[in-house]
């Protein structure tokens, strides 16, 4: 090796090492934002009540080990004493539990949620309600929790929503739509269809009419 080249090589290596060091320091743990349907008890309660019934039972997403965690009456409680202190799952779902469920739901896939919300928000139909089926710019199917519920992605709990017949055993045929899907999509459009959510929770599978949501 040319002796004159040694200082040059050392200098080059030093510059590269410094650059790498600076580059590695440039990565910062900055807080990311999630664009999602904004939380309010009014807007989230219908979906939250539906979710705790359909998905938040103690054998499914009413468990702390799940990525999607759902809290509420008749399911997992935030208050450690809630179930022990009264019958049948304790008092009605609290606002803290709705918030906890909301945070779990929108935090599952922050970037995808942002994309979906960007396309879906404000998509109202002619009657002022949320547009269903959603327009082409709205893609709820990008969200994993929607895919799992619809059965387009593997789900240990199986397919829960059926968009078109033939539907699996135990899943009612849509008439004309599956109200579970209407409930979820309307929330993603920022205009939750409370009637669809309530009806979906109470009409499927013979649930007692006095059980739950209110």
């Amino acid at each position: 090796m040319n002796p004159r080249a040694l200082p040059l090589a050392l200098a080059t290596a030093s510059v590269v090492a410094t650059a790498l060091g600076v580059a590695s320091c440039a990565v910062q743990n900055t807080r990311i934002g999630i664009e999602a349907p904004p939380y309010s008890e009014t807007s989230f309660k219908p979906l939250g009540d539906f979710l705790v019934y359909r998905c938040g039972t103690l054998d499914c997403h009413g468990q702390p080990g799940r990525n999607l965690r759902i809290w509420g009456a008749n399911g997992m409680r935030l208050d450690p004493e809630a179930s022990a202190n009264s019958d049948f799952g304790g008092p009605p779902t609290t606002n803290d539990e709705y918030v906890a469920t909301y945070r779990s739901l929108v935090g599952l896939e922050p970037q995808v949620m942002t994309t979906v919300w960007t396309g879906c928000q404000g998509q109202n139909g002619p009657d002022g309600g949320a547009d269903y089926p959603p327009p082409e710019v709205c893609h709820p199917e990008l969200l994993t929790f929607v895919q799992k519920a619809r059965g387009t992605e593997k789900h240990k709990g199986g397919q829960l929503i059926c968009l078109s017949p033939p539907c699996p055993p135990g899943i009612p045929d849509p008439a004309p739509y599956d109200l579970q899907d209407v409930c979820i999509v309307s929330w993603l459009e920022g205009n939750v269809n409370a009637t669809a959510c309530r009806t979906a929770a109470r009409s499927h599978y013979g649930l007692p009419q006095d059980a739950g949501a209110e």
């Binding site: 039972t57 008749n74 997992m76 809630a82 022990a84 059980a211």
Partner: peptide, 25 residues
């Protein structure tokens, strides 16, 4: 029962002897 059992055939998995935040008792 006022709720669904979505997939646990083992009732005692949720109905543990002690009620708590993850069991109705």
């Amino acid at each position: 029962m006022t709720t669904l059992d979505n997939r646990a055939g083992s009732c005692n998995a949720c109905h543990t002897l002690q009620a708590g935040p993850n069991s109705v008792g």
